[in-house]
Design a binder for these strands. Structure first.
Lengths: 109, 109
DNA sequence: AATTTATATCGCAATATTACGATAGATAAA
DNA sequence: TTTATCTATCGTAATATTGCGATATAAATT
């Protein structure tokens, strides 16, 4: 096995899980924080800032890009990464609703 | 390899990644949704509702419990799971701040 | 054209995850 | 006490992830 049974879940559940999974790594959190911090986009400064090899960073960026969380634009020699607004807001809403649907402490546990 | 280099990241980055990772599976999203939906706690109804084997569900519940997202209380023969309010609110805040720190579309990508 | 610079991809090794059958443990019911 | 019920754990197979060196690609500079 080792293969998630996506077919038994809803589209929404699979999508949310995929987006969370793309974010669920400290390096990718750090990359996103770095993009968010600088108002402008981020190129390969990441390799110097995080303590990971260039190949590894490139792989993490690819995962964030594949998930649709960031987008990259070629800017001469380097590539310019920034947040993909559409996905960002979608996930923000989904998570917002999800967490807000918790109605406080119950009386059973 | 295959081992995340947690030592080069901040405590906050590692914690957030760990919590997101615990949620980043459609079955675990479904479990959480089920707990959230019913105002009371949830025992083993999950095995009938989701299309996964009992051992698999138990494993997913364990992961959510280890991450501190849910808690389980033994209730006779069955076990009663519900949200762990502290972790829930922590993650809610962390994610809220994280997503809110995006300052809209920039001019470079 | 040759060189430098920035990023992507390949291939690999180590480790982690997912799923499940089989089985164990623990409480309730008969 | 025996049986039924519910959940946890073990063991295992299939697959995925993480990290990196080596190498490829592609644009800019000399």
């Amino acid at each position: 096995m080792g293969l998630t049974k996506t077919e038994i879940f809803t589209e929404e559940q699979n999508q949310m899980a995929a987006l969370l999974k793309a974010m669920a790594h400290p390096a990718r959190i750090a990359i996103l924080q770095r993009i968010l911090k600088s108002n402008t986009c981020i190129c390969g400064d990441l390799v110097d800032e995080l303590g990971l090899a260039q190949a590894t960073i490139s792989q993490h960026l690819k995962e964030l890009k594949n998930a649709g969380i960031i987008q990259g634009t070629i800017e001469g020699v380097s590539v310019c990464y920034c947040i993909e607004p559409k996905t960002w807001k979608l996930l923000q809403n989904q998570l917002g609703n999800f967490f807000a649907s918790y109605k406080g402490e119950q009386n059973c546990c």
